[in-house]
Simulated assay, not measured.
Amino acid sequence: MSNPNTQALSDAGVSIWLDDLSRERLTSGSLAKLIEEKNVVGVTTNPAIFAASLSKAEVYGEAIAEQRDKSVEDAITEITSDDVAAACDLFKGIYESSKGFDGRVSIEVDPRLAHETAPTIAQAKALYERVNRENVLIKIPATLEGLEAITETIAEGISVNVTLIFSLERYREVINAYLIGLEKAHAKGLDLSKIHSVASFFVSRVDTEIDKRLAAIGTGEAAALRGQAGVANARLAYQVFEESFASARFEVLAAAGANVQRPLWASTGVKDPAYPSTLYVTELVAPQTVNTMPEKTLDATAAEAEIRGNAIAGSYDAANRVLDKLAAQGIDYNEIVNLLEVEGVDKFEVAWNELLEDMSVALKGAK
């Protein structure tokens, strides 16, 4: 029986995806239990998640031994792809019943390729073929170089999770990249109804960076703005979503079977303990959205979230006022979102390098 709070969230049009995956979750039945009891209908992964997962050598001992004659990169690809494929199989029923919107499992291209278009496209295709499941989503970062990669991957009929979006301008570019990809796919005669995408808009990291600067300002006026930027930014992203997919351009594609690219709220774990643990859940409820949660946030949602229906409708003027007030405090929005993108790529690269190092040690131990 599902939890009433997570059920209310689902009823309000929010798809709950777990921001975690490991072989232990799959073999222990932990993930299946979350599907049954807490309305989880998808999974996202990233290099940091796999680094944490693969650090548990006892769970992956046999799998690592099977890869002992392969390169470190190939071993990681094989093991993580197997986990993703198994999760895709677990979600197959949800994928089919939701007509492809949910039941999705994401796997990310090597973050070291974030600023290289052609290699990203090549690896996106390779990962899709390796996982070999229709309900996999290939994660591509929303760097400038990633935009063309998003377009070309979609044009091949491969569904994409666009990650590391922080700015409204970049979000518009991501939507445009998706639409161009759909137009190319349509010109090739591909079935657009089979192509899906989500746009992962990061939330808590915006507050973390802006709150730090507000604290440095040190005035009461600045302090009053703490914890407001992330939600305001995400709500304005939803406005961009609504406007973009109500356009005449998308209507043509929709008539050919195309799906909207849903906004996905990422980085929804609260970093500041002074804030409600479900801040980035309850304040971002709206139809056709995805909220990808670490388990701690999912548990808090199940235990204490008050879901009051659509929390974004009618909020755009207030959200714009928040950004205006921040600008009046000398907070440079563009500088911050650009910094967060750079830091986001760097963090994933660090996690990837840790994963490479851990796997290298594990493979040597298996020989």
Rank of each mutant, 00 (worst) to 15 (best):
A366E: 00
P119E: 05
L284Q: 07
E73C: 02
A302G: 03
A366S: 04
A248C: 01
I331R: 11
R262Q: 14
S15C: 10
V206N: 10
L113P: 02
T143C: 14
A57I: 12
R130H: 08
L164D: 00
T282D: 13
A302V: 05
F91Y: 07
Q7I: 07
E341H: 08
A216K: 14
D69L: 02
S10W: 08
D317N: 13
K296N: 14
I154S: 05
L236D: 02
K188D: 13
A85L: 00
T153K: 06
A351W: 06
V240M: 03
A255V: 11
I210L: 13
L279R: 11
I35N: 04
A185F: 06
V270W: 04
F50L: 02
G314C: 06
I79R: 01
E357C: 01
E169Q: 12
N135P: 11
I336Q: 13
A274F: 14
L26D: 14
K188E: 15
A215H: 12
H186N: 11
L147M: 15
D89N: 04
K194H: 11
Y238H: 10
A51T: 07
S28H: 11
L147W: 12
N259W: 02
K347T: 05
S2V: 14
D20W: 09
L279Y: 03
L144W: 12
T208S: 14
I107K: 01
V285A: 02
D272H: 11
E306A: 10
A313E: 06
N320K: 14
Y95D: 03
V41E: 03
A313D: 04
G227M: 13
R130W: 09
L279M: 15
M1D: 09
A114D: 13
K367R: 12
P119D: 01
E343K: 14
G230R: 02
K99I: 08
V43R: 01
V231D: 03
D110I: 07
S28R: 09
E116L: 15
V41G: 01
V345R: 06
R249I: 09
I121Y: 00
L192Q: 09
I140E: 01
D358K: 04
F245S: 07
I138M: 05
E145S: 14
N338Q: 14
A300V: 12
A142H: 03
G181P: 01
E349H: 03
F50N: 02
D191A: 08
A351G: 12
D20Y: 09
A311W: 00
A222S: 15
R172W: 07
R25N: 08
T45D: 01
E58C: 03
L113S: 02
I165Y: 08
Y275Q: 10
